[in-house]
Design a protein around this nucleic acid. Sequence first.
DNA 1: TATGAATGAGAGTTCATTCAT
DNA 2: CATGAATGAACTCTCATTCAT
Lengths: 225, 225, 225, 225
Amino acid sequence: MTRRRQLLIIRAVNGNSVSEECVKPLQRRQRERLQRRADILQAAERVFATKGFHAASIEEIAHTAEYGTGTVYLYFKDKQSLYIELFEDKMRDLSASIHERVRGATHPLDGLRRLISARLEYFEHNRAFFQVYAREGLDSDLGREARWQGVRRAFASNLALVTRLIAAGQKRQLLRRGDARRLAVALSGMMIQLTRDWLRQGEVDPLTNQVDFVLELFLRGAQQE
Amino acid sequence: MTRRRQLLIIRAVNGNSVSEECVKPLQRRQRERLQRRADILQAAERVFATKGFHAASIEEIAHTAEYGTGTVYLYFKDKQSLYIELFEDKMRDLSASIHERVRGATHPLDGLRRLISARLEYFEHNRAFFQVYAREGLDSDLGREARWQGVRRAFASNLALVTRLIAAGQKRQLLRRGDARRLAVALSGMMIQLTRDWLRQGEVDPLTNQVDFVLELFLRGAQQE
Amino acid sequence: MTRRRQLLIIRAVNGNSVSEECVKPLQRRQRERLQRRADILQAAERVFATKGFHAASIEEIAHTAEYGTGTVYLYFKDKQSLYIELFEDKMRDLSASIHERVRGATHPLDGLRRLISARLEYFEHNRAFFQVYAREGLDSDLGREARWQGVRRAFASNLALVTRLIAAGQKRQLLRRGDARRLAVALSGMMIQLTRDWLRQGEVDPLTNQVDFVLELFLRGAQQE
Amino acid sequence: MTRRRQLLIIRAVNGNSVSEECVKPLQRRQRERLQRRADILQAAERVFATKGFHAASIEEIAHTAEYGTGTVYLYFKDKQSLYIELFEDKMRDLSASIHERVRGATHPLDGLRRLISARLEYFEHNRAFFQVYAREGLDSDLGREARWQGVRRAFASNLALVTRLIAAGQKRQLLRRGDARRLAVALSGMMIQLTRDWLRQGEVDPLTNQVDFVLELFLRGAQQE
DNA sequence: TATGAATGAGAGTTCATTCAT
DNA sequence: CATGAATGAACTCTCATTCAT
């Protein structure tokens, strides 16, 4: 820091162009730092997925990421932060995927279809994270702690998106009247459970094959008409 | 707990004849043994529900049940056994409740209604166990261990019951054709997620109020016809 | 607990004398507990004395006391508590020794002599604790923490006793006028440094041999009259 | 720190001729090296003073000195060396101050006065180092290690100076007969403890105000004549 | 030469499990 | 049997030290 700052000052006085020799290395530093953070998050995702928060050990995460134990603490304050940041990062990612897909929807039911598709696709490509996601809120004493509020909020906002879509469908009389939130919960439950089952069964064919099944069931029900 | 203590005192005060106490000592022993086992399981349910398997401590369970730490080990081989036996016991219980209710059904759709009702009712009265139930299979490395096979099986047989009911409905052409198992998974997912949400929201009105909502949604879907 | 309580009730109802079989074991328990606590404190004293607070390890303390590592935590909340309680216990002890000795004094100067004698004697018999004592307040950021206030207070009250004695001597015109507290500090300094030197030199002859030296120097000074 | 940076900038701006910079590069190198060493020692003094040897971290020292962590290791073999060299440097400094002041003494008692004055003045201007100084020898297992011999010697030679002065006073019959070394220890103890107390009390008025108090007490004692 | 990211040994602390009472 | 004190393995986290840049 100090050394580097001095060099910058001297060089600036000398009139050397700063951009080539100094800005780039800083960018590289930053890039590398982000890369390592991502490495660790990825390893954490795998380990947390397999073992759950408490049974996962920092050492295993570090070694999975091929780093030393102490290195994890250069990027995350403690185990909880690692978990929380992982959750928030991935939730942001999931939300972005869904929003992006839904944005192109022509009408609410198309929106729902896109949402289901985006979500199953995301889970298909992020199986490890799905395990973490599906556990959310089950350790009820963790969720009550202040630091986990962000996680709760991310989860809630995800549900809110589904709710809004359903409410929009109701407004246009495409969907029956009723508690939109409750419908959203039920729809989410279908998707989660189908994903869990798909994992349990060994992930034979693409999870996204089930998009129509989910949509159909949600819209028309199982009953013979 | 208090009850137990009272019984002992009363008996001591009554001064039951020695002969009587020796006639069926094995039965009494056995009864007391089962009672203690049940006490511990009940405490374990509460603690596992709140903290999850790893964060729950044997000491907390023992003290919640008002026993000494070591006592737990007289009734359960170790922490895993306690968890597994708890799960199996409760699953047996849940299955029995459902079977009993479904048995009186007049036709498959009534059966489904009874199943949903029995399950939500069970969850409503066994909130603690529900948390344990909802976690099932999420710690994938636990599930793979041999000792957990019983748990897996209990869970699977529960699903199989739903599947059979749905298949029966399909055979009678009450339900549309399609993968009955997948429908069962989706239906379970709805119920689980609605229950989780009900717990998260603070359990305001009876969960069983949602029976019709679930049945309707499952049968007719959400779409305006 | 629970078991034992039951037994007590039953036995009391039966009319068995409680005193012999129940009170004694409780006393024994309590006695043993205190004994172990004392064992650990003694070991801690030795280790803290040799290494200082930070360099001392709980494992070394435990093994010095011939216990397992975890055992220490049955008697002390954490390392700081162990240190603080050790300090407070010994300071109480030291204060009691001094007070007791000083109480029999015929006049203030005799009181001072007794104080010096009691203090040097205590240090002679508690060499390990002396090292801890002499370190007091040197890690200035520890002292500022709330939990260490008790330690600071114990130390201050020790100084206050010396100050009072000196002030009493001044009131009777046995000692020259002047800041009594500052005199007390200086006197303490002599004793501490002489003790440190005595330890450094290998504790050849009894430290208590220096009582008169200290008293003389403090009262009459070093100057040839 | 700021100073250093300024110098570098000025030099760069002045555009010193290359030849000049190469004429005495070794001297400049050497000068800069010593400067950095001094920077680090100064930072170390502050940090060691506040936290003690074990709780002080190299990183904090480095950053206090505005250097990178690794830089410290270019100037000091390891943490212990840093501590030891700091101690030795400052002790040399302290000794020099005292010797210089004492050298001008007209007679032994004046010498003692000058010694006390020099020492309290030094502590007043080197409060941080005083904390390190006052800890000397308290971690008895460190003191026993070979590398600390220099520290022990520095400390002992400091005491020897006091002893010599006192012995000189005795020879001229200005001071009473008696173990000069022991008197020196006691006198040092007074000064150390008064300094500690002065620090604890918040350093209200100059420590050097206490020179006469110390001298008087040491020479004439506290007793009313 | 200066840096600070990486490391892993080692510390404090917890807890499943055992066992003497 | 019931107990809970004792244990040590295992966990989280820190920090002296190294080394690629």
